[in-house]
Amino acid sequence: MNQVEAIRAVQKMQDYIENHIYEEITLKQLSNAAGYSSWHSAIFKETTGRTPFHFQRMYHML
């Protein structure tokens, strides 16, 4: 996965979190939203410096 693909995947995960902010979200759901395997969910932290669940908590607090 190149850098552009990683950024697009993370954006899709962020969009999914924003659209499902009050729901419990699994890594599988995020992976499906991004179109990659659960293993690729690690790119979220690599790209943003935060886990998807930390992002969800922060977004929820806004």
Rank of each mutant, 00 (worst) to 15 (best):
M1C: 01
M1P: 02
N2A: 06
N2S: 11
Q3C: 04
Q3N: 14
V4M: 10
V4F: 02
E5Y: 10
E5D: 11
E5N: 09
A6G: 00
A6D: 01
A6V: 03
I7D: 04
I7N: 13
I7H: 04
A9E: 04
A9D: 04
V10K: 03
Q11H: 13
K12D: 13
K12V: 05
M13S: 03
M13Y: 07
Q14G: 01
Q14T: 11
Q14F: 05
D15M: 05
Y16R: 11
Y16F: 15
Y16E: 04
Y16P: 02
I17S: 01
I17G: 00
E18L: 13
N19E: 12
N19A: 13
H20G: 06
H20C: 05
H20A: 07
I21K: 06
Y22D: 11
E23T: 11
E23C: 09
E23A: 09
E24C: 01
E24T: 13
E24D: 14
E24Y: 12
I25S: 03
I25Y: 05
I25G: 05
I25H: 03
T26G: 07
L27T: 02
Q29N: 06
Q29I: 10
S31T: 04
N32T: 15
N32Y: 06
A33R: 00
G35A: 07
G35H: 04
Y36H: 09
Y36D: 02
Y36N: 01
S37Y: 04
S37L: 08
S38A: 14
W39Y: 12
W39K: 13
S41A: 14
S41V: 15
S41G: 02
A42P: 00
I43E: 06
I43H: 08
I43C: 06
F44H: 01
K45Y: 03
K45N: 05
K45L: 04
E46C: 07
E46G: 07
E46N: 12
T48F: 01
T48I: 07
T48K: 12
G49E: 10
T51N: 11
T51L: 08
T51F: 03
P52I: 02
H54M: 13
H54A: 15
H54Y: 12
Q56Y: 04
R57C: 01
M58F: 06
M58K: 15
M58N: 08
Y59F: 09
Y59A: 03
M61H: 12
M61S: 14
M61Y: 02
M61N: 07
